[in-house]
Design a protein around this nucleic acid. Structure first.
Lengths: 360, 360
DNA sequence: AGCCGCCATGAAAACGTTTACGTTGCACCC
DNA sequence: GGGTGCAACGTAAACGTTTTCATGGCGGCT
């Protein structure tokens, strides 16, 4: 039986109202009694019952995070970014990861009803505009991550996949690799679609004469390996391969090594994400870095804004820019002698963070 | 203004009590009214207010996870394991990561008071027996992860660092590398201490004549690099280096490569954790795998047990066994031709999961 | 036919807070 | 000296549920 506000009131010889006022610093209580109440509360180890408080306050001081069942760096970094910022604002974080499929997400969403003041949703296959219209409670402030739903009442925050892809293509073309093959990701993934679109656009602009080569992958290492083999068999071998994520690039690398090709000597290679593995493969992988923790922080900031002014349907679209980090796999370090041993010397180029906000 | 149980009651022409009974399936309501209530509830999109419910029920259906500010694989896998199992039991997960230092953890712990039915605490420097005695609420079911506090009212779940270390030492000795140097982790880390202790014990038993070489590290890659350099300068070079975690092993590898040494030809190498990077460095790193998601699942199971029977101070200590996974860096694959290209062929050996439970 | 007991239902209490409102005491001013 | 205003404090309502208890109806048994 935990100690309640009544116990404190009795012990401090005041009413419960005064205890509440003293502890919440809402004023209307003399300094002496406030001190007495605080002391008694500390002695009794009183901590207010969260449920009771949020029942009357209509505030839970908790935000929810709805994530698909993904493991690895992205997940942890995102949570970390959100949690760090949430904690700075005195908010708690209720996570619901590890659901796959729309039905699963729907029950998770319903269950969060009334337990959170706002919600961050990382979109996944099945979680689209229709899903949200059907399942997202009306007044609940929400931020959509990596989503292409436009209208709605939620703010949307996306990685600038297009700019990132474009920057990498520009870099590769600048190195003389105009004939770039792209390994795409799963069609039902938002980032994958954007990256492919970005690649098409970049090639059209920067290397219009090069053939457009796109081979299908699904973000897995093995699909990258297969794609690598397929590309090796292509008649004129591409000068460079740009994979839509790092794991597929690693798969490609394996295929190239098996075929006895030197990277980047015979063929250049680049990925997307900058997962930790990228810097440890040989040669270290050039890639596009997305600052995931920052993505989480920004999402939390956006959500806090929405929570501050209720009722205002501040639907907006924001974008987080990404850097390209140049290691050895793309051939930029080829000149100047030894290829190895300089894995620490990377050059990063930032795409301008197009935080283009379009409230409607 | 969300719809409440009263709205449903009015619309279905029954009392709120009947609505509650119908929706909770507590019986005592005719099939016809139950159907009518359910239908109205669905139409009105009624979802019970969590705070109100847990105010009366004394159940939040939420468990808390208190974690230090660690990023990367361990964090995400642990959360994933916990969440997966929690979700299977209809529980929510309130995480509070990103605190460093005991004070920070204390406020996080207080804040969880009354918001959770149980709590999983991953111990970190500062979070020790005294801390828990002072800050852990009396009746709250709790599971301590990687902790050496013994008494208390909490269940303790540990990785079997000793068995894992021992298994790796046995493997190395079996390959003929009796002269093993150990790179230790930070002194204030529980796993690090256990692994070092395990190494000492294993060497005393399996290679009593070999010199005991231990060089200090702090789990970081750079500290591993430094340790590697130090070991290279040692008069008789050790036959093998066993790092207390994979990141340090990677640092060692870098040092060895720089010095022109072949791994495992000139010196064998092993790590601990089996982080994803381990399989992608060259040569792939032999290591001790800890199944982190399973650790999280087991913690959740333990916690659920504690929550089921309240009052029973079922303090106990459990251990999760770990596998050793043999790749190329330790030299087991040296025979049989090419060193490369077989990075997929690994052999894993399981230490018996010593789930030794000692209720007191 | 009358009574007993069960079952569906409703009324109301309870959970632990916050807060609107009322009450008191006191200083101040006319 | 009495009215006025303000500050401190207490009382009670309210939040949305669950659950206990009472009540009525009805079927079955004697």
């Amino acid at each position: 039986m935990a100690t309640t506000i009544k116990d404190v009131a009795r012990e401090a010889k005041v009413s419960v109202a005064s205890v509440s006022r003293a502890l919440n610093g809402s004023g209307g209580v003399t300094a002496a009694t406030e001190r007495r109440v605080r002391e008694v509360a500390a002695r009794l180890r009183y901590v207010p019952h969260g449920a009771a408080r949020s029942l009357i306050t209509r505030r839970t001081h908790t935000i929810g995070a709805l994530l698909p069942d993904l493991h690895g760096e992205f997940f942890s970094e995102l949570i970390r970014g959100i949690d760090l910022e949430a904690r700075a604002r005195g908010l708690h974080l209720l996570v619901s990861s590890s659901h796959n499929g729309a039905d699963d997400a729907a029950v998770a969403l319903r269950a969060m009803q009334g337990r959170v003041d706002g919600i961050v949703i990382l979109s996944s296959p099945g979680v689209d505009a229709d899903f949200l219209r059907a399942n997202l409670p009306e007044g609940l402030p929400s931020v959509l991550l990596n989503s292409d739903v436009q209208g709605g009442s939620a703010a949307v925050l996306n990685i600038d996949n297009v700019a990132g892809t474009c920057a990498m293509v520009r870099h590769l073309v600048g190195l003389g690799h105009a004939d770039i093959a792209f390994v795409s990701g799963p069609k039902d993934n938002f980032d994958a679609r954007q990256r492919e679109a970005g690649f098409r656009a970049a090639m059209a602009k920067l290397a219009p004469k090069a053939p457009l080569r796109i081979v299908a992958g699904n973000f897995s290492e093995s699909s990258g390996y297969l794609a690598g083999r397929e590309l090796l068999a292509a008649k004129p071998r591409p000068q460079a391969v740009f994979a839509a994520n790092d794991m597929m690039a690693v798969g490609c690398l394996q295929a190239f090594k098996e075929a006895g090709l030197a990277v980047p000597g015979d063929i250049a290679l680049a990925g997307f994400d900058d997962i930790p593995i990228a810097r440890y493969v040989t040669p270290p992988l050039s890639t596009v870095r997305v600052r995931i923790a920052e993505l989480g922080k920004n999402a939390m900031d956006l959500l806090a804004d929405l929570m501050d002014r209720p009722g205002v349907s501040a639907a907006s679209v924001h974008t987080l820019g990404c850097d390209i980090v140049v290691r050895e796999s793309c051939g930029a370090h080829r000149n100047g002698g030894a290829t190895a041993r300089t894995s620490k010397t990377t050059k990063t180029t930032k795409t301008r963070p197009t935080t283009h906000s379009s409230p409607r």
